[in-house]
Simulated assay, not measured.
Amino acid sequence: MLKIQYLVSGGIITNYKCSSKCKHCCYSSSPKWPNDYMTPSMADEIFAVLKRLGCDAVHIGGGEPLLQPDKLYGILDAAYRNNIGIEYIETNASWYKDAASAKTILKELKGRGVKTLLISIDPYHNEYIPFWKVKGLIQACSAVKMNVFPWQMEFWDEVDALDDHETHSLDEYIRLYGEDYPVRLMSRYGLNLKGRAFMTYRPFMKKQPVDQILKESKPCGLLSGIYHFHVDLYGSYIPQSCPGFSIPVKELVSGADPDKYRIFNSMESVGIRGLFELAEKEYGYTPKNEYAGKCDLCYDIRNHLVLELGLDLPDLKPEGHYKYI
């Protein structure tokens, strides 16, 4: 049985729709996603499960959770009902219009126990969000005494060197800071190279023969990790550092059937070789000669199953993770 008996720290993905399509996004969020949002009843169900598993507080993110603040309030109310604390809410500040309207929303958040906003500060977001919005939101937080968790402050001067009323592509940053800027940016940010982030940086990665990757196969321990997990708006448990895999969190509590979640189980119990052999034998998968490591091969297999074959597999959800990359 695939089972989790204890969880330490994690987050809630209220929605995948986002105002941005950032190159570093491991969840493949973008404006193309459906406008779905977690319901209060789903939040109640999730928070009750997390509480039983020993998780007393979560952070909230997306997508961009504040695209629909009225729906976010319902999630916060559900957290209060279940005695779950909110560590912070992640936001890219795209929703900021003016100080007055921002303060109204911030006061609603404070009234529901939110003490901190994590506000994104980096060149990836600046491709879609002019920096004046970030500055304005920080000032609004200060006015209502909302704490700010700037992520990450070390990029402030680099972003602020450009016109803050315009968005700026990574090409502009390259012209300003050098050809190797994207690679330096990756290491400084501490990216989780999954989803769109992996596709962005795949060209910079060393390739390996597929036989070598399979020979070095080991069980993927991250899939059963209890730190930095996420649960999304559909009630799916998103494993530590590995979006695109999912199992309903309520099933994991009682024990999920490995025969039902064969893709997940093959990776968690055997590793990339297990997934490869399953895909080759049952789904006609044919590999390329080389890949940028096991994660590249894993994504290629999953894309084959979800996009090329159009399979509706319970452990490869949501499909948008693959469609909107």
Rank of each mutant, 00 (worst) to 15 (best):
G113W: 05
V270Q: 04
G244M: 00
Y173T: 03
G85N: 06
Q152V: 10
M42I: 04
I60R: 08
F149V: 02
P209N: 12
S30A: 14
C26T: 10
D300Q: 06
L117K: 03
W156E: 03
P69Y: 12
K51N: 13
I46E: 02
W132T: 04
Y128L: 07
N147M: 12
D180K: 14
L223V: 06
G11C: 10
N289I: 10
R188W: 00
Y80A: 15
K145C: 13
D164L: 12
S120V: 03
H59M: 10
S241H: 14
L67P: 03
H125V: 05
I84D: 01
I138Y: 04
M205H: 00
I213H: 01
A161M: 13
D70L: 11
F155Y: 15
N83F: 12
L191E: 11
S30N: 07
D70V: 02
S246V: 04
F131H: 02
L223M: 11
G10T: 11
H230V: 01
P203D: 10
P243R: 05
D312I: 03
K215R: 15
T167K: 11
P31G: 08
M267K: 05
N265E: 09
P130L: 03
G10L: 10
Q5L: 09
K145N: 15
G54N: 05
A102K: 01
P203S: 13
L162T: 08
P219Q: 05
Q152Y: 11
I325Y: 02
F47E: 08
F276D: 02
L109Q: 08
W95L: 05
G221R: 12
L193R: 03
L223G: 04
S266M: 03
C22Q: 01
P150E: 06
S19H: 09
G85R: 08
L233S: 06
P314S: 07
K23N: 12
P219F: 06
R112T: 05
Y177G: 07
D180S: 15
P239I: 12
Q208K: 15
G284N: 05
V49N: 07
D70Y: 08
A43D: 05
E166F: 09
A102Y: 00
S19W: 00
F149C: 13
G284P: 06
S94K: 04
A57K: 14
T39A: 10
A292S: 13
L176E: 13
E282Y: 00
N192T: 15
L191Y: 04
E90S: 12
N83W: 00
E90A: 06
K115V: 01
R52H: 09
Y324C: 01
Q68E: 14
Q208Y: 15
S9Q: 11
P318C: 10
P318L: 03
N82A: 02
V58P: 00
C298G: 09
L109R: 00
W151N: 14
N35R: 12
L76I: 09
E90L: 07
A43T: 11
K115T: 01
D164A: 09
E277L: 12
R196E: 08
L162C: 11
H168W: 14
Y16D: 08
I12M: 12
P258Q: 04
H228Q: 13
G63I: 02
I12D: 10
I46G: 06
D160R: 11
P65T: 02
C298I: 07
K3L: 13
H304N: 09
Y128R: 01
H230G: 00
Y227N: 14
E158W: 04
Q240W: 12
E172D: 14
D171G: 12
L118W: 01
A48R: 14
R262K: 15
T200Q: 08
